[in-house]
Every structure is written in C-alpha cells, then in structure tokens.
Amino acid sequence: RHRTIFTDEQLEALENLFQETKYPDVGTREQLARKVHLREEKVEVWFKNRRAKWRR
C-alpha cells in the first residue's frame, strides 16, 4: 500500500469538518468523501490519525 497524498483542497475540507466534529458519522464521512473524491475509508483513517495528533 502506498501513502495517500491529500491535496490542499482535500485537507482544507477535512480540517474544516474536524473543527465541527472530531467524530463524524459514516454518512457525514461518505458525503465528504464524495465531495473531495476520496474513499470513505481514507476519510475515516484521516480522522483517526488527526484525533491522535490532536490529543498529543
């Protein structure tokens, strides 16, 4: 597996949602994934990693 490289637009959308909710539900993740052309799984893992970074 290779590392996903997120575009600035994707990161902006992910960060904006993170400010709203640290734990978006699957529907919200799917909606964002469609909007920025990512797989929902990638969005889910990004949030998991972003929460870990936020806790540190």
Rank of each mutant, 00 (worst) to 15 (best):
K35R: 11
E40Y: 04
T28M: 07
G27C: 11
F47S: 01
E41N: 11
E30K: 10
A33C: 10
R50H: 03
R3I: 13
K53V: 14
V45W: 11
N49W: 11
V43T: 03
V43E: 06
R51I: 07
R3G: 13
L14G: 02
E9P: 12
K42A: 15
H37E: 07
R3C: 14
V45Q: 13
E44K: 14
T21M: 13
T7I: 07
D25A: 05
R51P: 04
Q10P: 00
K22D: 04
R55W: 06
H2K: 05
E12M: 15
K35E: 15
R3P: 11
T21P: 03
R29N: 02
V45I: 11
V43M: 05
R29L: 07
W46P: 02
W54I: 08
R39Y: 08
K35M: 15
E9L: 08
R29D: 01
R50V: 02
K22P: 15
L32T: 04
L11A: 15
A33W: 00
N16H: 11
I5S: 14
K48E: 09
E40F: 15
L11Q: 05
E30G: 13
W46H: 00
E20Q: 14
R51D: 02
R1M: 13
K35A: 11
L14S: 01
T7C: 03
K22Y: 05
V26R: 12
T28G: 04
R29M: 13
R55A: 10
F18A: 04
K35W: 02
N49M: 13
E15T: 03
K22N: 04
P24E: 03
R29F: 05
E41G: 09
E40A: 09
H2D: 12
W54G: 07
E41C: 05
V45P: 03
D8S: 12
K53S: 11
N49E: 15
R29Q: 03
D8T: 10
A13S: 07
R29P: 04
E40G: 12
E12F: 08
E41D: 13
R34T: 04
R3W: 04
Q19A: 07
E40H: 06
Q10E: 02
F18Y: 07
H2M: 14
E15F: 00
L11F: 15
Q31S: 13
K48C: 09
F6V: 13
I5G: 14
E40M: 14
G27K: 13
E40P: 14
H37A: 13
P24D: 03
L32S: 00
E40L: 13
V45E: 13
F18C: 00
T7Q: 05
H37G: 14
V36Y: 15
T4C: 06
F6C: 04
K48A: 13
L14M: 06
K35Y: 06
L38F: 13
L11T: 08
E9G: 09
T4S: 09
L17D: 01
R1P: 09
L14I: 04
K48V: 10
V36F: 09
A52S: 10
E41F: 01
F47M: 05
E44V: 09
K35Q: 05
K22F: 04
T28A: 14
T4N: 14
G27W: 12
R34M: 11
L38M: 12
W46L: 00
E9F: 06
L14W: 01
A13R: 05
R51G: 02
E20A: 14
Y23M: 01
Y23F: 09
E9W: 03
W46C: 07
L32Y: 04
G27R: 11
R3F: 11
T21Q: 14
V45F: 07
L38I: 07
W46Q: 00
R55C: 06
K48L: 04
H2Y: 06
E40I: 10
A33F: 01
V26L: 14
D25K: 03
W46S: 00
E30N: 08
